[in-house]
Design a protein around this nucleic acid. Sequence first.
DNA 1: CTGAAAGCGCTTACAG
DNA 2: CTGAAAGCGCTTACAG
Lengths: 355, 355
Amino acid sequence: MDKMTDTIEAFLSLRRKATINDVARLAGVSKKTVSRVINNSPSVHARTRDAISEVIARISFQPDPQARGLAFRRSFLIGLIYDNPNAQYIVNMQMGVLDRLRGTGNELVVHPCDWRSDDFIPELRQFLEHQRLAGVIILPPIAEDRRLLDLLDEMEVPRVRVTARAGASNQPTISGQEIVSHDHIGCAEASAHIALLGHRRIGYIGGNLDYPSAHERRRGFDAGLAQHGCAIAPDLDEGGNYSFASGYEAGQRLLTRPDRPTAIICANDEMAAGAYKAAYESGLRIPQDLTVVGFDDAPIADRLSPPLTTVRLPTRDMARMAANLLISPEPSTISHLQVDSKLVVRGSSAKAPNP
Amino acid sequence: MDKMTDTIEAFLSLRRKATINDVARLAGVSKKTVSRVINNSPSVHARTRDAISEVIARISFQPDPQARGLAFRRSFLIGLIYDNPNAQYIVNMQMGVLDRLRGTGNELVVHPCDWRSDDFIPELRQFLEHQRLAGVIILPPIAEDRRLLDLLDEMEVPRVRVTARAGASNQPTISGQEIVSHDHIGCAEASAHIALLGHRRIGYIGGNLDYPSAHERRRGFDAGLAQHGCAIAPDLDEGGNYSFASGYEAGQRLLTRPDRPTAIICANDEMAAGAYKAAYESGLRIPQDLTVVGFDDAPIADRLSPPLTTVRLPTRDMARMAANLLISPEPSTISHLQVDSKLVVRGSSAKAPNP
DNA sequence: CTGAAAGCGCTTACAG
DNA sequence: CTGAAAGCGCTTACAG
């Protein structure tokens, strides 16, 4: 056993958390050089680097994020900012971000907020001033909020937006990266599926028009139908707000009319579940009497009877990609990454009943 | 305008983030004294304190958490550690913790993990070694994991556990605080409700017996029935694992027998939803032919048709209480706080059908 | 390719 | 009740 090993043994017997000074001493170099290794500086002799890496591994040294952060003038925290009521969506996003953060030394700080509150911007300003975040990921719908984007630009916080509409609220910014979900692709698939099943009396329950997603989804549904010479019946075109209650009420209106639809397209699964309830109360069987499709592939989708045909977005992947844009050592020049939604066929869609 | 105000004006025109040095200079004291004010040290003259507070407010000084953390040898981050598939539960817990953290200068770092993985403990050790957290909150079921508790003790991380069973895995520890949910209270209410409705053929679909909650809930259901001289029929006592699928399968077994139950008690709402599906497929109407009750008041509960009678736990409040135990300046001597669940009656429970 | 000095913004001893 | 010095564990800017 050489002297260096002895010293390492001695250090280990102290059972103390290692610091950069321990590594420097044990490796016989200055702490500046250790710092270079930690930060992957190229200008370190290979042998020096190897020796230092060896010591780091032996004493399981992990640089203290607070000390690094203080010196760097930024933290190793990624903020996730959102105002979204869909719990599964939020949890998936968190998981996706964490997938990418694992092993990078960064942690995830969650920050739900209240878009409607007067305190919305001041509260976020306070949050951002307090922590000097490594970056933030903003989820729909507030990823479209101009005031929030301006605030982030002003504070020079790197950010990635997750949106349903390319280029929305866009302008030259400090690091305006974006993950865009193509909601319309899967919607077009879904409505084409319905047209191919022979449906012609097709009803619609739309999403909250304040959200870009509501427009994108409608655009997709219309396109898929148009492909087959079909369209939403103008007299069956109901507005909803993405809630179960709004889907239920719209479903009641649609299903109690004499010339009721044979299929109802819903802009999300929550409203589709509401439509199920209306159908159930009207004594209509799904899918024999009525076809229903939704969007989200929410947990409720395959718990409904029958399981709901819907459109799925790769939520977790999107979050992973968003985190990657923030973390990636070589910031890519691509600023808009796009992901497609896709149709998931289950038991709620079937051939149109014979007239 | 006096000289001090002038200087503050001058500082503000710099548009620079304030530091403790700015406050000290502007208030004409040492930074040590400013530090005393920040940390509420009693030994500061009232007039001195007021002057400093005034400057702090004027220039909106916020101490840098990283610098404070480095000096304090701990961060201002609260960790939330869990392995739980229920998205709404997780989101509610996060909201509750954040309710209490707001304004304290602490942030929430979420850390889902995989209880089943071989890497479970090593991964958590790495996490805890990296960050020097101000404290952690552990959610069920891993709040019962002995290895995790030992790890936290070894690393001297303050912790609060959220559990369904008082005293589980308990032993003298560094700061073994605990929020205990009395699942059994609401369960007893629920089963008493069923007994009072006249049901006598009562089936049961149980939770995963690896989780304390499964035992606590069963205990409550049994007690509520016993109050009225009733009990789960031994031949209708099904095991489940809290999943929709397990509820569905158990429901099928229960409902296809000739002497089927008139009421089914489920250890959670997911399984109750599975039982709904089995009932639907057997052509049984809820609640006319079959009464069903669940536990959780999950989002699905009032989206089912009819809405599910269930038991609600004040999840968000529990999280708030847990965070409070960690944050509270005067650590309370009470180490076990208890909260009750309660019955929520909806449309899925009705009088037993006439034999 | 490597290092000594100064600094990031705070706090803990130690004085007085 | 208040302060000057040293330190938390890192990095930057400057040398060499």
